[in-house]
Simulated scan of single mutants.
Amino acid sequence: MTVARMRALGRAELTLLLRAKSALFTGAAAPVLLTVGLWSAVGEMDLAGTGLSPGTIMLPGAVGFMLLFTVYSNLVGVYVARREELVLKRLRTGEATDPEILVGSALPAAVLTVLQVLVLVVAGPTLLRVPMPSRPDLLAAGVLLGLVMTAAMAAVSSATTRSVEAAQVTPLPVMLVSLMGSGMFIPLDVMPDRVAEVCRLLPLSPVMELVRGGWAGGQEAAVTLRSLALAAVWTGLMLLAARRWFRWERRG
């Protein structure tokens, strides 16, 4: 069965993740440390007229950090390592299909991210005095689209990565642009209008708008529909790119 095969692949990948201390730290601890480290800077922002508070900036921002570190950066290394070790090539000779192999390999990162988001939802009101998400449907949609998008982005980035060592560097451009321009740390509402309009077109920007709208509420229906449509388009493009360029064998 498809589910059984993906579960088996995910279980094996989880075992490897627990043994790789650096990857586990990047996926589990880095988003938390980054969120805590940026708290004071967010507190100094001028948020007048935006309807936002430090809490409604940092909690959605933490979700973005998880998507970048726990899913995207981690999976670039996973896909490259399994390719160079010929694990992917051997798996393709069995019953598992290509999508099952890729999804199974991504399951531990996805599950860890969902668990982290649930912790934020439960602990946020107590630790940061932020109300529970007013639109959990938007939060769930943003997280789901973000998971699929960043996993596909990782597959695309792995195609241009020659070695496991290089996988520590390859994700950096995407991560830096997303951190600064997708509203994770600096909300688009406080940017100059022209800059904000350009940044809204970045892949993770609509995901962050959905997540922030889920927490803060008050988002207009047109903005929500635009975010959903743009996130869906980017997700589809990343999936198509992964299907086209993902490499299953060692680079020559």
Rank of each mutant, 00 (worst) to 15 (best):
T2W: 08
V3Q: 06
L9R: 01
L9Q: 00
L9T: 06
G10M: 04
G10D: 02
L14N: 04
T15Q: 11
L17P: 03
R19T: 08
S22D: 13
F25K: 01
F25S: 05
G27D: 11
A28C: 14
A29N: 01
A29P: 03
A29M: 14
L33T: 06
L34F: 15
V36G: 10
V36C: 08
A41L: 12
A41R: 01
V42Q: 08
E44M: 06
D46F: 01
L47Y: 08
A48Q: 02
G49Y: 06
T50V: 06
G51R: 03
G55V: 02
T56V: 10
I57K: 00
M58Q: 08
A62V: 03
G64H: 09
M66F: 07
L67D: 00
T70R: 10
V71A: 06
Y72N: 05
G77E: 06
G77F: 13
G77N: 08
G77T: 13
G77H: 12
V78T: 13
R82I: 00
R82N: 06
R82K: 13
E84C: 02
L86D: 15
K89D: 14
R90V: 04
A96L: 12
A96G: 09
T97I: 02
A106V: 05
A106R: 10
A106M: 07
A109D: 09
V111I: 15
V121Q: 04
V121K: 01
G124K: 03
P125S: 00
P125Y: 03
R129G: 06
P131Y: 07
P133N: 06
P133I: 02
D137T: 02
L138N: 04
L138H: 04
A140K: 01
A141E: 06
V143E: 10
L144I: 08
G146I: 09
V148A: 15
A151H: 09
A152D: 08
A154G: 13
A154Y: 08
A155I: 04
V156E: 04
T160V: 14
T160E: 10
T161H: 12
S163V: 12
S163W: 12
V164S: 13
V164N: 08
V164W: 11
E165Q: 13
E165Y: 07
A166L: 10
A167E: 04
Q168E: 15
V169A: 07
P171Y: 15
V174R: 00
L176T: 05
L179K: 05
L179E: 04
G181K: 05
S182K: 01
M184E: 09
F185Q: 09
I186H: 09
P187T: 07
D189L: 14
V190L: 10
V190F: 07
V190P: 08
D193H: 09
R194E: 13
R194Q: 11
R194A: 15
E197K: 13
L202N: 08
P203A: 13
M208K: 00
G213P: 02
W215P: 01
A216R: 12
A216W: 00
A221H: 10
A221K: 02
A222G: 07
A222L: 04
S227W: 09
L228T: 02
A229E: 05
V233P: 03
T235G: 09
G236A: 14
G236Q: 13
M238W: 15
R243T: 01
R244H: 03
R244W: 14
W245Q: 06
W245E: 02
R247A: 14
E249S: 14
E249K: 07
G252N: 04
